[in-house]
């Protein structure tokens, strides 16, 4: 027997399996970053002094990174829309752009980290630097995860377009939901760490 509702939605719930699965996974991610955010609040409220992000961190670089990540979200959703319009070539272009922008984000992040280390600012420096490195590091790991998934869909995974285009489109949508969530986390990290 085949597992039902891998492609078409179940009539009473209205979703296909992976759609529900990814949202549940994102729900757990919300709780993961929520707990870290809550820890941040607790530590900051309890601290005697807390530096402003702009005193230690590079706002121009982070702003560029915000723009890069939001743009990659748009290219991601465009790659899905291209598949919905049955255009595999445009999908490749947009998906390639998404992966490229994600790499740009990581490179910029790498420069930021390197600059911090050069000035002797390590996670052990202060609670602020600790939370900065932990949150951005964990977010960076999520970016890497997204790059791996997107590269798979761009490369070997796209063979499915020939055999089961509807399912492949769904896969891209699922990867997109994850990618937008990673973008969404950054949208909060940016002001919380850099601007406040």
């Amino acid at each position: 027997m085949q597992i039902p509702y891998t492609v078409e939605p179940r009539p009473d719930t209205g979703v296909y399996n992976a759609k529900l699965g990814i949202w549940l996974f994102l729900a757990s991610e919300v709780m993961l970053f929520g707990a870290l955010f809550s820890s941040y609040v607790l530590l900051r409220v309890g601290a005697t002094t807390w530096p402003h992000g702009y005193e230690h961190l590079n706002i121009p670089l982070a702003t560029v990174n915000t723009v890069v990540l939001i743009t990659s979200s748009v290219t991601m959703v465009m790659s899905w829309a291209s598949l919905a319009l049955k255009n595999l070539r445009k999908f490749r272009v947009y998906m390639g752009a998404t992966v490229g922008l994600a790499c740009v984000f990581l490179v910029i992040k790498g420069f930021e980290y390197a600059a911090k280390f050069e000035h002797g600012l390590y996670p052990s420096e202060s609670t602020f630097m600790a939370i900065y490195f932990t949150l951005t590091g964990l977010h960076g790991l999520h970016i890497i995860g997204g790059i791996v998934v997107n590269c798979y869909l761009l490369g070997p995974g796209s063979k499915m377009w020939k055999t089961d285009p509807a399912r492949f489109t769904n896969r891209v949508e699922i990867a997109g939901l994850y990618w937008h969530f990673v973008d969404l986390v950054w949208i909060f990290l940016f002001p919380v760490l850099y601007l406040l």
């Binding site: 939001i70 997109g176 937008h180 973008d183 969404l184 949208i187 940016f190």
Partner: peptide
């Protein structure tokens, strides 16, 4: 940030 997040969630997601 909430406004931006809502836009991403509502339209991209």
């Amino acid at each position: 940030a909430s406004l931006k997040a809502s836009l991403v969630a509502a339209y991209f997601m």
